[in-house]
Amino acid sequence: MSDVTAPRPRLVTRPLVLVCLANFCALTSFYLLLTVVPMYAAAAGGGVGAGMTTGALMLTTVVAELCTPWLVSRYGYRRVLVAGMVTLGAPALLLLGSSGMATILAVCLVRGFGFAIAMVAGGALAASLLPAERRGEGLGVLGLVSGIPAVIALPAGVWLAGNHGYPPVFVAGALAGVTAAVLLLGVPDPRQEAGEPAGRSLGVLAGLRTPALVRPSVMFFATATATGVVVTFLPLAVADASGDLATLGLLVHSVAVTLARWWAGRHGDRHGAAGLLVPGVLATAAGMLLLVMVDSPYAMLAGTALGGAGFGAAANASLALMYDRVAPSGYGAVAAIWNVAYDTGLGVGGAGFGVLAARSGYPAGFALTGVLVLAVLVPARSGAGLPRGGGKAAPPA
């Protein structure tokens, strides 16, 4: 008689731990500077200049994300990731010697390329190390680990800059990126171990022609746009209040994102991820509408908490749903498409809101952002390709 109680496959392995630690360091480098660089640039270019830094960062990030699956297929995970981590961290040191907008934007453009590699190649590598039977649980844990840098580094960067100046933030961001590169030197390349020939991978363009992948990513994009607005402009919107209030708001947002990603991973593994997408969009929009009352500390904190929870749930649910719809050979394309949605949303939110707020003020800008987030539910309701009842969709042919 066969054993029907076979043990579950092991979730945590040494390579996965090293990838998680490297991801932690990369995101620490990213979040330390995400809000601080717009603050640094505000003196040179005002609110529009602050938005341009986030837009420049995400511009090269999106372009590089489309190329990263090809780079991995050509050179392998390890070499591409090590180069990407160094590119993410080291350019921050150039900000120590210049506060000109040209230098700031150039650094953002270069760091965007490294960030794209870190997220796309790192995400695909982590997914390939997870057993299929525990993928939902594993993504939940990875989301929790990935969210910790946002909880710590995002508000810490603002606090450090306000109390000790910008140089310590730039140095810390550079060291975090280089540390990630060192950690990845000890990770074996699964493509080489499997004997997969160079140049073979599912293309991003093919993934972009697959509605089952595009539709969840579009809904996630809407929540990422709102997050780009919050992390870029919340410190400026509450500038007349205590600086600690902006730090607290970013901390609340980051904690909400992290906890929601972890909870969504566990819930989606048991009940399906698709049912969490629409609630995530609704919560994100509601959070932005609460920020219309940004002058009220209670409304601001409630808005950042609700918006962060919606973004975190949509992030985990969309990624899990997209991985479920492809074979392992498509993980790189999924990671690229999902990260394009993420980073395009952050860039559009940062750059677009800067222009809007300069004309209409922050409350009106927050209100319009909330309405635009809700607009993504119109195509979703008319047939977003999501399975009813939260079930998993079959992989596309």
Rank of each mutant, 00 (worst) to 15 (best):
L377I: 05
L34M: 14
D240C: 00
A314E: 02
L154C: 03
A56T: 09
A180L: 09
P155F: 10
V86D: 01
L291M: 12
V292Q: 04
V72R: 11
L213Q: 03
F311D: 00
A237V: 10
Y342H: 14
A226L: 02
L105P: 11
P38G: 07
A198P: 02
W159G: 00
V62D: 06
G312D: 07
G383R: 10
V231R: 00
A127H: 08
V37W: 04
G249T: 09
G389P: 08
A124N: 12
A241I: 01
R270I: 03
L154K: 02
A153K: 01
A42M: 05
S29H: 03
G76T: 07
A315L: 13
A156R: 01
L175Y: 08
G122T: 04
V340H: 06
A226E: 10
T304M: 07
F233H: 04
A264C: 07
G76W: 11
S382A: 15
L306S: 03
L183P: 10
L202G: 01
G383M: 09
L33V: 15
V229Y: 11
F311W: 14
L154N: 09
Y75H: 15
A302L: 15
C67T: 14
V204Q: 07
P211K: 03
I148W: 08
G287C: 10
W263T: 14
F170R: 03
L142N: 11
